[in-house]
Write a protein that binds this DNA or RNA. Structure first.
Lengths: 289, 289
DNA sequence: CCCGTTCCGTGAATCGTTTCAAGGTCCCTA
DNA sequence: TAGGGACCTTGAAACGATTCACGGAACGGG
């Protein structure tokens, strides 16, 4: 029988199954940027957990655009996903409520939407910022700079707040802040250039994420600055390229796969209103040691 | 009426539509590695073209595993996609034939499967290898090394063949070949280490892709080697990080978005047996100039 | 040996959308 | 005014997997 099925090339029609059952055996994962290793790792974690549960993944990318996010959410809803894991960009409580009313479990990753009642999974960024800042001060670096982006997303704001609090509590002067327009390597290079143009360099730099930190390191190395001897650089995320950068990056690791895995579990079990917070971890490599 | 639809939160049931129409308004894109910027760019090109046609994308990742590729193809077939764009890993002519028999247009990207009758889109890698090699010899570099991976995929073999042919035709000695086990930055670092351990460095290095080239550059810079003065390095792909590397990378650009766009057009129009070959382009940056 | 219970297999109804057909209405023309 | 044509509305069938109900058969116990 099974041999015959194989022989004839029969494939079950998932559309019919989904129609009959009301919703499919798929789950939607909507991330901001498919090219960012951070999101691909979260997605991998989610996928692994889903396959274990016999589910399949529908990926979508919002590219940071609320309008595209809307289109993706519409698409996923039409496809009849039974859950949605999302890093919201412009998603509001009303839309989330509608999704949940249609029986779709919504789990927010690394961001919260007040009043939506959806579950969320995040990382304690205040703690992450503290870890990064205290590591630099423990190395004896007191003249710090922060490289970030404008406008800041909530997680970035929290990291910076955590770092600032740790610094002021230790009696240090508030660091110089450089704001770029994107969380990219190119933006990091530009920030480092601006710092070098000032004439005197800080002896420690906190970057909003690893991509920027790699840009900062590249530009400084190129300018003949010794890392970490003259300037120590700390990133955030611990994406794969961090370990293989010219100067391997000291960074704050986010448990990205766990983020994806736990988000999946919440979505599959349909738990509502649960907020899971994971702890970041300092990874010391050469760029700040 | 439309206002009422909006008010009640009505969403069309795509499962029912797909069931009635026999196949949905989606197209599957199955790539090898979602974390590789090469594939994300191809995917973006495909997505842009698809959205114009009113189609949506179902992404999948095979992670280079034939077994996972099979699962993804099964999934996409069950979902009733009307076309499939794929970088085949273990997909054979028989399976492709079955897909086509089920009315699914199959387009192969950057690889061919003999006897499958599917359309394909690729880049002239022999020409790409020639461009890279001739650029190095034009710079007066004669003592070359090639950093590649073992086993080589067909595109890699073609690049290397193109480079070798250009070198022998110009009367140069065949280059030293270093084979690593993965096309990653870490593998590139390892290759550079092996080269430095040999005692005498080549004055030009051809890398199988940009990720490896970045690793090679990082390790050499770290070892105090001047690039490009002492060693010139050429990559392949022109992924985004190539431009922002410590030493911006000279590389061979593949028209990745065009690859995705053309593959989509072939899939949507259902053209069969057409093989499109695009031309690569040398991008000169600092690492070899 | 007969009756009851359980198990298996068959058949029909269902999901929401699309498509096709039939019936009805309105307008234009002869 | 009557007839015909075109257009719109309304209704029903179909897509394929699932689920439920019903009937038949087999087995076990009284």
């Amino acid at each position: 029988m099974l041999a015959a099925i194989e022989e004839l090339g029969f494939v079950r029609n998932e559309a019919a199954r989904a129609l009959r059952k009301g919703s499919g055996r798929t789950l939607g994962v909507l991330v901001e940027d498919i090219a960012n290793p951070y999101f691909t790792d979260v997605a991998r974690g989610a996928e692994a957990a889903l396959n274990e549960g016999g589910f399949d993944v529908l990926w979508c990318t919002s590219d940071g655009s609320p309008e595209k996010e809307r289109r993706c959410v519409d698409f996923l809803e039409e496809q009849g996903v039974s859950g949605l894991i999302v890093t919201p960009v412009g998603l509001d409580a009303r839309r989330i409520g509608r999704l949940r009313a249609h029986g779709i479990a919504v789990v927010l990753v690394d961001r919260k939407v007040p009043g939506a009642g959806a579950s969320s999974v995040g990382v304690d960024h205040v703690e992450g910022g503290r870890l990064a800042a205290e590591h630099l001060t423990a190395l004896g670096r007191h003249d710090l700079a922060v490289v970030t982006v404008e406008p800041e997303t909530p997680p970035l704001r929290q990291r910076r707040a955590g770092a600032l609090r740790a610094l002021t509590r230790a009696g240090h002067a508030p660091p110089l802040t450089i704001a770029e327009t994107a969380l990219t390597t190119a933006a990091g290079r530009s920030a480092a250039q601006r710092l070098m143009d000032f004439g005197t360099l800080p002896d420690g730099i906190l970057c909003a994420n690893d991509l920027m930190a790699i840009g900062v390191v590249n530009e400084l190395v190129r300018g003949g600055v010794k890392i970490p001897q003259e300037v120590a650089v700390v990133g955030y995320d611990d994406i794969a390229p961090a370990a293989t950068a010219v100067v391997p990056l000291t960074t704050v690791r986010q448990p990205r796969r766990d983020l994806g895995r736990i988000a999946t579990e919440l979505a599959l079990t349909g738990v509502e209103g649960k907020n899971v917070v994971l702890n970041p971890e300092l990874v010391v490599r050469e760029s700040a040691s």
